[in-house]
Structure formats: structure tokens, C-alpha cells
């Protein structure tokens, strides 16, 4: 398995450059995101490597992965559809929206589609309350918002993601 240092030497350098030289530990959060790029979650080896870079213990890195909800120590779907069902969105039908989405995908909240492509989750307020129903898509590459959604628009996106994957395999 190739290491972070091999894959992202440049990124690591610029991340560390943000903080005082004696505060390498501050880089840990950004490095965890980096480690999630490949598989969408943090492997044990990555934990060790991040610990080395930041000069802290592997346990301390793992502890952070557990604390923050955008970090994962287990693989999930390649794309995580995270629907906000917090109060303001719920007042605008987000729970219904989530239900429909799950029905259409034939999975329950928290589950992953058979093709391993999509995991559907509900999350807390995403600061888009005026554009509910809405969700974000988290993948190794990062996060994107999808606002003012309908069952249709959501399925359209799902279709796009599926075709994109198929295309990748095709090549």
C-alpha cells in the first residue's frame, strides 16, 4: 500500500506550512482528509503515518477520527448522500424527502447500495435551511451541496453518479 508521503508530498508540505513549525499537530485534521481521499476512510497504516508526521501518538489520531463526524475508520459507499433532517429542514419536509430517497434506492438510512456506490445518511444542520430539502455528497474528493431538491432531482444526480462510475470502468 502506497503511503501518504508518496502520494501527496506537495499537499503535506503546504498543509504543514500553514502552522508554526513547533505546532505540527495542527495539521492532523487536514491530513486525515488527505488520508480519506483514496478509500473514503482512514486506514490503520494512515493513522500511523499521520501520527509520525504530526509527532503525536497513533491513538491520538484515531481519537480524532472518532470525534469528528466527517471522518471514518470504516469503508462506506463511494458517495455518502447526507440529507439534513435537522429542525429547520424537517419543517420543510426533509424527513419525507429522505424517506422517498431511501425507497427509490431500496435501502434504509445508514445502509449502502448493493453496488457499493451510495450510502444514505441523515445529518445535522448544514447551514442551508432556506434551501431545504437539501443534502451534501461526501466522497474522497470532498464535499458538495445539493439544495432545493426534489425526489426527481435527487434521482437524476444518482443516475449521473452511476453513469460516471460506469464510464470509469468502461475506460
Amino acid at each position: 500500500m502506497s503511503t501518504l508521503a508518496e502520494n501527496y508530498p506537495g499537499e503535506i508540505k503546504s498543509i504543514l506550512a500553514k502552522y508554526p513549525p513547533d505546532q505540527k499537530r495542527s495539521a492532523v485534521m487536514a491530513l486525515i482528509y488527505l488520508a480519506q481521499r483514496e478509500g473514503g476512510y482512514v486506514t490503520k497504516q494512515a493513522l500511523r503515518e499521520i501520527a509520525e508526521i504530526c509527532e503525536i501518538s497513533t491513538t491520538d489520531v484515531a481519537s480524532l477520527v472518532g470525534f469528528y463526524s466527517l471522518y471514518y475508520d470504516q469503508p462506506g459507499g463511494k458517495y455518502r448522500l447526507q440529507v439534513c433532517t435537522d429542525l429547520p429542514c424537517a419543517l420543510r419536509g426533509a424527513e419525507q424527502f429522505l424517506e422517498n430517497l431511501c425507497e427509490n434506492l431500496g435501502i434504509k438510512v445508514g445502509e449502502t447500495t448493493a453496488d457499493g456506490l451510495l450510502t444514505v445518511e441523515h445529518v445535522m444542520c448544514l447551514a442551508a435551511c432556506d434551501k431545504a430539502p437539501m443534502f451534501q455528497v461526501q466522497s474522497g474528493e470532498g464535499l458538495a451541496y445539493y439544495e432545493n431538491q426534489t425526489a426527481e432531482s435527487a434521482l437524476e444526480l444518482v443516475g449521473r453518479l452511476r453513469r460516471r462510475e460506469a464510464g470509469k470502468d468502461g475506460r
Binding site: S57, T59, G66, F67
Partner: peptide, 10 residues
């Protein structure tokens, strides 16, 4: 200075 145990989750 052996921080080999820590809290996980929240």
C-alpha cells in the same frame, strides 16, 4: 507522556 490511550467518539 505516554498518550497511548484516548477518548474515541463523543
Amino acid at each position: 507522556d505516554d498518550p497511548v490511550i484516548a477518548f474515541h467518539n463523543r
